[in-house]
Design a protein around this nucleic acid. Structure first.
Length: 485
RNA sequence: GGCGACGUAGCCAAGUGGUAAGGCAGAGGUCUGCAAAACCUUUAUCCAGCGGUUCGAAUCCGCUCGUCGCCUCCA
């Protein structure tokens, strides 16, 4: 298995510290507002990676935090007129709601900054004792020049950063690059007691504390969005390694951004789309597929078009799955065995499928390629079924195909529903104003018209449904309806 | 100003040394009462441009152009 490591800038063969088990920490969200599609990308990508590790037989301890105290939460509390911890609670709940819809599984552990104040204080104390941090009027700062490796993750040198001159000027810091480990609180702000007076933790220290407590001094994988590389992860390395004297993280993974008009989607630019509004218009599975159809490190341009394409892709998948299931359900009782000419080819594609799927995923979690392989198999299934096969040999092949698809689907956590569930979900999300019963009733009317060869009447019913967004498909013994995309 | 990434068909997107996956859209065909779907054929002599390394490069190196990111909170 190969993983691109931000620390070295290249793909490396993955081997965990303890063979067979992976310790992984993902930076979650700061809960001061609802999530946008960018947050979803990070969650979905690392959820998929976690699932793949399990699929490959690794034991994995997967930790994802919530930052539930910081300036933005305090600001939001003032704005909404509710206590800061109510802000955190509200947006944590919203986070779960959104992420569950996207098929993101809860982490094994979801620690919060405020649940680790004593651990944070211990580390800050230790850093002060070791001379890596200093106290200034109730604040504690990490001394960046005291840590020689500073800049190794983001690939920059201290001098270069200072030359940038966009660093805030804070006279109390000894060095402009120094960052807060502990912030004294003003009157009325949330505060915890500490050796330096009442205050709250700085942003970066919580992750160091939670990693250390729940996963250990050196962990295998630490992940998050690419915007966390600097300063957040750089600072985490500095404070953690200065404190423990051990390497902090072995593989750093960062996902790429979602862009809008080529620009990074962000709160400050105001060009973001919340998950709430996207999930109002698109089924969650379409969104998840949309996110996985691009390699996790590449940027994704956000717009309706690729989301609609993802719907198409799902439609194609579920239609083939339906054919496959119909074929298996019907069975070959009373039919003459027929092994079509394409049997060998189909068998070949099927036999190599799992291997190709794993090869793609082994290569830095190339979900886009893996999905491509799924569609090669889908095409082969369609082709095979087009040849009207019958008999145990064909059935055996197709039930194997079904199992293989289900297995891959389980890893990516897309393509996992039944075709009927997919259609119902589409019917709901597209708000066509028709329910299943009404559609079935019209299909029955049309069936009768067709039985009498009243083509005009049958076509009128079909046209009527088409106008409302429903396409009919006449199959061997029945008619299926589909939501037009 | 410093550091870095990316530029593949009409669109999306894989592909890091061996001769361009997959999807969408388009054209023609098979199937169908007609459709729809599916399948078949077809759609990049070529991977931003120019040089170089190599038997061989979209893939490695250099330069140019373009786009974006980080350097400030940020997934």
């Amino acid at each position: 298995m190969k993983i691109y490591n931000t620390l070295t800038g290249r793909k490396e063969t993955f081997s965990p510290l303890t063979p067979g088990t992976v310790n992984m920490y993902v930076c979650g969200v700061t809960v001061y507002d609802v999530c946008h599609i960018g947050h979803a990308r990070s969650a979905v990508v690392f959820d998929t990676i976690r699932r793949y590790f399990r699929y490959r037989g690794f034991g994995i301890r997967f930790v994802k935090n919530f930052t539930d105290i910081d300036d933005k939460i305090i600001g939001r509390a003032a704005k909404e007129g509710i206590p800061w911890d109510q802000v955190a609670k509200k947006y944590i709940e919203k986070y779960y709601e959104d992420m569950h819809r996207l098929g993101v599984e809860d982490a094994d552990l979801e620690p919060r900054a405020t649940g680790h104040i004593p651990e944070i204080i211990d580390i800050v104390k230790g850093l002060v004792e070791k001379g890596h941090a200093y106290v200034m009027e109730g604040d504690v700062y990490f001394s960046v020049p005291s840590f020689p490796g500073y800049g190794k993750l983001s690939g920059r040198r201290l001098e270069d950063m200072l030359a940038g001159a966009r660093v805030e000027v804070d006279e109390r810091k000894k060095n402009p690059m120094d960052f807060a480990l502990w912030k004294s609180s003003k009157e009325g702000e949330p505060a915890w007691g500490s050796p330096w007076g009442p205050g709250r933790p700085g942003w970066h220290i919580e992750c160091s504390a939670m990693v250390l407590k729940h996963l250990g001094e050196t962990i295998d994988i630490h992940a998050g969005g690419a915007d966390l590389v600097f300063p957040h992860h750089e600072n985490e390395i500095a404070q953690s390694e200065a404190y423990t004297g051990k390497p902090f993280v072995r593989y750093w993974m960062h996902n790429g951004f979602i862009t809008v008009n080529k620009e990074k989607m962000s709160k400050s630019l105001g060009n973001f789309f919340t998950l709430e509004e996207i999930l109002e218009r698109f089924d969650a599975e379409s969104v998840r597929l949309f996110l996985l159809q691009t390699h996790y490190r590449s940027p994704i341009e956000f717009s309706n078009e690729p989301l609609e394409e993802a719907e198409h892709t799902l439609e194609r998948f579920y239609q083939s799955l339906e054919r496959l299931e119909d074929f298996l359900t019907a069975g070959s009782q009373g039919k003459k065995e027929c092994v079509p000419a394409g049997f060998e080819e189909a068998e070949g594609v099927l036999a190599s499928f799992r291997e190709r799927f794993m090869q793609a995923m082994d290569d830095d979690f190339n979900t886009a390629l893996a999905i491509g392989h799924i569609f090669e198999l889908v095409k082969e299934i369609n082709r095979f079924l087009d040849a009207r096969p019958a008999g145990p040999k064909a059935e055996g092949l197709m039930s194997r195909a079904k199992r293989e698809l289900a297995e891959a689907a389980g890893v990516l956590n897309v393509f996992g529903r039944t075709p009927a569930q997919w259609q119902r979900a589409l019917l709901r999300i597209k708000k066509l104003g028709m329910d299943e019963a009404a559609i079935e009733k019209l299909i029955e009317e049309r069936r009768q018209a067709r039985a009498q060869k009243d083509w005009a009447r049958a076509d009128a019913i079909r046209a009527n449904l088409d106008e409302k967004g429903i396409t009919l498909e006449d199959k061997a013994g029945s008619t299926a309806w589909r939501v037009k995309i």
